[in-house]
Amino acid sequence: MHKCEPLYIERFSVFQRLTHLLVIVSFLTLAVTGMALKFAMEDWAQWIAFMTGGFTVLGALHRFFAIVTFFYFFLTMILLYTKWKESGKSLLGFIFDAEGLVPNLNDLKEMIATFKWFFGGPRPYYGHWTYWEKFDFMAVFWGIAVIGSSGLALWFPEIFSKFLPGWGLNIATIIHSDEALLASGFIFTIHFYNTHLRPDKFPLDPVIFVGSITVDELKHERPREYDQLMASGDLDKLTQCRAPEAWLKRLSTVFGIFVVVTGSMLVVSIIISMVKHIHF
Protein backbone atom coordinates (compact mmCIF):
# COMPACT_ATOMS: atom_id res chain seq x y z
CA MET A 1 0.00 0.00 0.00
CA HIS A 2 2.68 2.49 1.06
CA LYS A 3 4.91 3.81 -1.70
CA CYS A 4 7.82 4.18 0.68
CA GLU A 5 8.72 4.79 4.30
CA PRO A 6 8.51 7.38 5.73
CA LEU A 7 5.99 9.10 3.53
CA TYR A 8 5.88 12.90 3.35
CA ILE A 9 3.06 15.36 2.80
CA GLU A 10 3.44 19.05 1.94
CA ARG A 11 2.13 21.45 4.57
CA PHE A 12 3.55 24.75 3.28
CA SER A 13 4.15 25.62 -0.36
CA VAL A 14 7.34 27.36 -1.49
CA PHE A 15 5.33 30.58 -1.82
CA GLN A 16 4.09 30.31 1.77
CA ARG A 17 7.55 29.45 3.07
CA LEU A 18 9.18 32.41 1.34
CA THR A 19 6.43 34.70 2.59
CA HIS A 20 7.04 33.51 6.14
CA LEU A 21 10.76 34.14 5.66
CA LEU A 22 9.94 37.73 4.71
CA VAL A 23 7.76 37.95 7.80
CA ILE A 24 10.60 36.72 10.02
CA VAL A 25 13.26 39.06 8.68
CA SER A 26 11.04 42.13 8.58
CA PHE A 27 9.27 41.51 11.88
CA LEU A 28 12.50 40.84 13.76
CA THR A 29 14.16 43.96 12.34
CA LEU A 30 11.09 46.10 12.99
CA ALA A 31 10.91 44.82 16.56
CA VAL A 32 14.61 45.40 17.28
CA THR A 33 14.74 48.86 15.71
CA GLY A 34 11.42 49.96 17.19
CA MET A 35 12.05 48.66 20.71
CA ALA A 36 15.45 50.41 20.72
CA LEU A 37 13.51 53.68 20.40
CA LYS A 38 10.72 52.75 22.82
CA PHE A 39 13.28 51.73 25.46
CA ALA A 40 15.89 54.34 24.50
CA MET A 41 16.77 54.98 28.15
CA GLU A 42 18.05 51.40 28.52
CA ASP A 43 21.66 50.35 27.94
CA TRP A 44 20.70 47.54 25.58
CA ALA A 45 18.72 49.95 23.39
CA GLN A 46 21.62 52.39 23.28
CA TRP A 47 23.90 49.50 22.38
CA ILE A 48 21.63 48.55 19.47
CA ALA A 49 21.59 52.15 18.25
CA PHE A 50 25.36 52.40 18.56
CA MET A 51 26.02 49.09 16.79
CA THR A 52 23.72 49.88 13.88
CA GLY A 53 25.11 53.36 13.44
CA GLY A 54 22.62 55.56 15.24
CA PHE A 55 18.94 56.28 15.41
CA THR A 56 18.75 57.54 11.83
CA VAL A 57 19.88 54.09 10.66
CA LEU A 58 17.30 52.50 12.96
CA GLY A 59 14.66 54.76 11.42
CA ALA A 60 15.72 53.91 7.86
CA LEU A 61 15.68 50.15 8.59
CA HIS A 62 12.32 50.47 10.31
CA ARG A 63 10.78 52.24 7.33
CA PHE A 64 12.35 49.86 4.82
CA PHE A 65 10.95 46.81 6.58
CA ALA A 66 7.62 48.57 6.96
CA ILE A 67 7.52 48.56 3.16
CA VAL A 68 8.50 44.87 3.17
CA THR A 69 5.63 44.25 5.59
CA PHE A 70 3.12 45.94 3.31
CA PHE A 71 4.62 43.89 0.48
CA TYR A 72 4.11 40.51 2.20
CA PHE A 73 0.65 41.60 3.25
CA PHE A 74 -0.01 42.13 -0.43
CA LEU A 75 1.55 38.71 -1.30
CA THR A 76 -0.70 37.05 1.25
CA MET A 77 -3.75 38.64 -0.36
CA ILE A 78 -2.63 37.23 -3.72
CA LEU A 79 -2.14 33.83 -2.12
CA LEU A 80 -5.60 33.94 -0.57
CA TYR A 81 -7.09 35.05 -3.87
CA THR A 82 -5.58 32.13 -5.77
CA LYS A 83 -6.65 29.71 -3.03
CA TRP A 84 -10.15 31.11 -3.26
CA LYS A 85 -10.19 30.68 -7.05
CA GLU A 86 -8.83 27.12 -6.72
CA SER A 87 -11.47 26.22 -4.14
CA GLY A 88 -14.35 27.09 -6.47
CA LYS A 89 -16.32 28.39 -3.49
CA SER A 90 -18.21 31.66 -3.02
CA LEU A 91 -16.23 34.40 -1.30
CA LEU A 92 -18.07 34.04 2.01
CA GLY A 93 -17.98 30.29 1.67
CA PHE A 94 -14.20 30.48 1.27
CA ILE A 95 -13.67 32.91 4.16
CA PHE A 96 -15.83 30.98 6.59
CA ASP A 97 -14.77 27.53 5.37
CA ALA A 98 -14.94 25.04 8.26
CA GLU A 99 -11.25 24.18 7.66
CA GLY A 100 -10.23 27.75 6.72
CA LEU A 101 -8.22 30.31 8.69
CA VAL A 102 -11.11 32.24 10.24
CA PRO A 103 -11.88 31.04 13.80
CA ASN A 104 -15.27 29.36 14.26
CA LEU A 105 -17.35 27.58 16.88
CA ASN A 106 -15.40 24.35 16.46
CA ASP A 107 -12.23 26.22 17.51
CA LEU A 108 -13.90 27.19 20.78
CA LYS A 109 -14.83 23.54 21.38
CA GLU A 110 -11.28 22.48 20.51
CA MET A 111 -9.86 25.08 22.89
CA ILE A 112 -12.01 23.75 25.73
CA ALA A 113 -10.94 20.22 24.77
CA THR A 114 -7.31 21.38 24.84
CA PHE A 115 -7.67 22.74 28.40
CA LYS A 116 -9.20 19.38 29.38
CA TRP A 117 -6.22 17.65 27.71
CA PHE A 118 -3.85 19.77 29.83
CA PHE A 119 -5.52 18.18 32.85
CA GLY A 120 -5.38 14.62 31.53
CA GLY A 121 -8.24 14.42 29.03
CA PRO A 122 -7.84 12.95 25.53
CA ARG A 123 -5.79 14.83 22.93
CA PRO A 124 -8.19 16.97 20.88
CA TYR A 125 -9.14 16.02 17.34
CA TYR A 126 -7.16 18.81 15.62
CA GLY A 127 -7.55 19.58 11.91
CA HIS A 128 -5.40 21.42 9.35
CA TRP A 129 -5.25 24.62 11.45
CA THR A 130 -5.42 24.62 15.24
CA TYR A 131 -7.06 27.58 16.97
CA TRP A 132 -3.70 29.00 18.12
CA GLU A 133 -2.39 28.84 14.58
CA LYS A 134 -5.50 30.67 13.37
CA PHE A 135 -4.95 33.25 16.11
CA ASP A 136 -1.35 33.78 14.94
CA PHE A 137 -2.51 34.32 11.37
CA MET A 138 -5.38 36.65 12.27
CA ALA A 139 -3.17 38.54 14.71
CA VAL A 140 -0.75 39.42 11.93
CA PHE A 141 -3.68 40.71 9.86
CA TRP A 142 -4.94 42.78 12.78
CA GLY A 143 -1.43 43.84 13.73
CA ILE A 144 -0.53 45.10 10.27
CA ALA A 145 -3.76 47.06 10.09
CA VAL A 146 -3.23 48.73 13.48
CA ILE A 147 0.56 49.08 13.53
CA GLY A 148 0.70 49.83 9.82
CA SER A 149 -1.86 52.62 9.83
CA SER A 150 -0.54 54.27 12.98
CA GLY A 151 3.00 53.83 11.66
CA LEU A 152 2.13 55.58 8.40
CA ALA A 153 0.70 58.48 10.40
CA LEU A 154 3.98 58.77 12.31
CA TRP A 155 5.99 58.39 9.13
CA PHE A 156 4.09 61.24 7.41
CA PRO A 157 2.98 63.44 10.32
CA GLU A 158 2.49 66.58 8.22
CA ILE A 159 0.12 64.80 5.84
CA PHE A 160 -1.67 63.07 8.73
CA SER A 161 -2.26 66.38 10.45
CA LYS A 162 -4.04 67.75 7.37
CA PHE A 163 -6.85 65.31 8.09
CA LEU A 164 -6.68 64.87 11.85
CA PRO A 165 -5.49 67.07 14.72
CA GLY A 166 -1.79 66.99 15.57
CA TRP A 167 -2.44 65.41 18.95
CA GLY A 168 -3.74 62.41 17.03
CA LEU A 169 -0.04 61.68 16.51
CA ASN A 170 0.33 61.27 20.26
CA ILE A 171 -2.47 58.70 20.21
CA ALA A 172 -0.93 57.04 17.15
CA THR A 173 2.36 56.81 19.06
CA ILE A 174 0.72 55.02 21.99
CA ILE A 175 -1.22 52.64 19.73
CA HIS A 176 1.77 51.92 17.49
CA SER A 177 4.15 51.32 20.34
CA ASP A 178 1.86 49.27 22.58
CA GLU A 179 0.45 47.18 19.75
CA ALA A 180 4.04 46.50 18.71
CA LEU A 181 4.86 45.54 22.27
CA LEU A 182 1.93 43.13 22.17
CA ALA A 183 2.98 41.71 18.80
CA SER A 184 6.66 41.28 19.71
CA GLY A 185 5.87 39.96 23.15
CA PHE A 186 3.38 37.52 21.71
CA ILE A 187 5.53 36.24 18.85
CA PHE A 188 8.71 35.98 20.94
CA THR A 189 7.04 34.06 23.77
CA ILE A 190 3.68 32.50 22.92
CA HIS A 191 4.25 31.78 19.23
CA PHE A 192 7.79 30.59 19.90
CA TYR A 193 6.56 28.20 22.57
CA ASN A 194 3.41 27.01 20.79
CA THR A 195 5.27 26.31 17.58
CA HIS A 196 8.92 25.66 18.36
CA LEU A 197 9.92 25.47 21.99
CA ARG A 198 7.27 23.07 23.26
CA PRO A 199 8.86 19.76 24.31
CA ASP A 200 7.57 17.75 21.33
CA LYS A 201 9.16 20.23 18.85
CA PHE A 202 12.08 21.65 20.82
CA PRO A 203 14.14 23.53 19.80
CA LEU A 204 12.55 24.15 16.43
CA ASP A 205 9.78 22.87 14.15
CA PRO A 206 11.41 23.24 10.73
CA VAL A 207 8.21 22.63 8.74
CA ILE A 208 7.79 26.34 7.92
CA PHE A 209 11.20 26.21 6.18
CA VAL A 210 11.31 22.69 4.72
CA GLY A 211 7.62 22.51 3.87
CA SER A 212 6.65 18.89 4.52
CA ILE A 213 5.94 16.60 7.44
CA THR A 214 5.68 12.83 7.59
CA VAL A 215 2.30 11.23 7.32
CA ASP A 216 2.85 9.72 10.78
CA GLU A 217 3.23 13.22 12.21
CA LEU A 218 0.10 14.33 10.40
CA LYS A 219 -1.84 11.40 11.79
CA HIS A 220 -0.66 12.14 15.31
CA GLU A 221 -0.88 15.92 15.32
CA ARG A 222 -3.78 16.62 13.02
CA PRO A 223 -5.97 13.51 13.16
CA ARG A 224 -9.02 15.25 11.71
CA GLU A 225 -7.11 16.38 8.63
CA TYR A 226 -5.67 12.86 8.23
CA ASP A 227 -9.09 11.30 8.48
CA GLN A 228 -10.52 13.83 6.02
CA LEU A 229 -7.75 13.08 3.51
CA MET A 230 -8.24 9.33 3.96
CA ALA A 231 -11.98 9.70 3.49
CA SER A 232 -11.65 11.81 0.34
CA GLY A 233 -8.90 9.57 -0.99
CA ASP A 234 -6.66 12.60 -1.52
CA LEU A 235 -3.91 11.34 0.80
CA ASP A 236 -2.32 9.07 -1.77
CA LYS A 237 -2.28 11.87 -4.33
CA LEU A 238 -0.64 14.31 -1.94
CA THR A 239 2.02 12.16 -0.38
CA GLN A 240 5.51 11.87 -1.72
CA CYS A 241 8.65 9.89 -0.98
CA ARG A 242 11.06 12.77 -1.33
CA ALA A 243 12.28 13.90 2.07
CA PRO A 244 13.21 17.54 2.65
CA GLU A 245 16.81 18.19 1.60
CA ALA A 246 19.37 17.73 4.33
CA TRP A 247 21.08 21.08 3.65
CA LEU A 248 17.73 22.85 3.85
CA LYS A 249 17.01 21.17 7.17
CA ARG A 250 20.38 22.19 8.55
CA LEU A 251 20.13 25.75 7.28
CA SER A 252 16.60 26.02 8.68
CA THR A 253 17.72 24.84 12.08
CA VAL A 254 20.62 27.28 12.26
CA PHE A 255 18.58 30.23 10.98
CA GLY A 256 15.51 29.32 13.03
CA ILE A 257 17.48 29.02 16.26
CA PHE A 258 19.22 32.33 15.56
CA VAL A 259 15.85 34.03 15.18
CA VAL A 260 14.36 32.35 18.25
CA VAL A 261 17.39 33.31 20.36
CA THR A 262 17.43 36.92 19.07
CA GLY A 263 13.71 37.33 19.68
CA SER A 264 13.98 35.79 23.13
CA MET A 265 16.87 38.07 24.07
CA LEU A 266 14.86 41.09 22.99
CA VAL A 267 11.81 40.01 24.96
CA VAL A 268 13.90 39.33 28.06
CA SER A 269 15.46 42.80 27.76
CA ILE A 270 12.01 44.33 27.41
CA ILE A 271 10.64 42.47 30.43
CA ILE A 272 13.61 43.47 32.61
CA SER A 273 13.27 47.09 31.50
CA MET A 274 9.54 47.15 32.17
CA VAL A 275 9.88 45.61 35.61
CA LYS A 276 12.60 48.15 36.41
CA HIS A 277 10.28 51.03 35.59
CA ILE A 278 7.29 49.85 37.56
CA HIS A 279 6.94 52.07 40.61
CA PHE A 280 4.85 50.60 43.39
Binding site: W132, I174, L182, F186, R198
Partner: peptide, 30 residues
Protein backbone atom coordinates in the same frame (compact mmCIF):
# COMPACT_ATOMS: atom_id res chain seq x y z
CA UNK B 1 -7.43 60.80 25.31
CA UNK B 2 -3.88 59.63 25.84
CA UNK B 3 -4.71 58.27 29.27
CA UNK B 4 -7.63 56.15 28.04
CA UNK B 5 -5.83 55.03 24.88
CA UNK B 6 -2.91 53.85 26.98
CA UNK B 7 -5.10 51.95 29.40
CA UNK B 8 -7.18 50.41 26.60
CA UNK B 9 -3.96 49.19 24.98
CA UNK B 10 -2.62 47.99 28.31
CA UNK B 11 -5.87 46.12 28.91
CA UNK B 12 -5.51 44.44 25.52
CA UNK B 13 -1.93 43.45 26.33
CA UNK B 14 -2.67 42.20 29.81
CA UNK B 15 -5.74 40.28 28.61
CA UNK B 16 -3.93 38.60 25.71
CA UNK B 17 -0.88 37.68 27.75
CA UNK B 18 -2.97 36.53 30.70
CA UNK B 19 -4.95 34.12 28.53
CA UNK B 20 -2.10 32.78 26.42
CA UNK B 21 0.27 32.83 29.37
CA UNK B 22 -2.09 30.58 31.30
CA UNK B 23 -2.55 28.46 28.18
CA UNK B 24 1.21 27.96 27.90
CA UNK B 25 1.79 27.41 31.61
CA UNK B 26 -0.80 24.61 31.60
CA UNK B 27 0.54 23.20 28.35
CA UNK B 28 4.14 22.81 29.55
CA UNK B 29 3.57 20.02 32.12
CA UNK B 30 1.19 18.15 29.79
Amino acid sequence: YLFYTFWAMTGLLVGTFAFFGLHTILWVPR
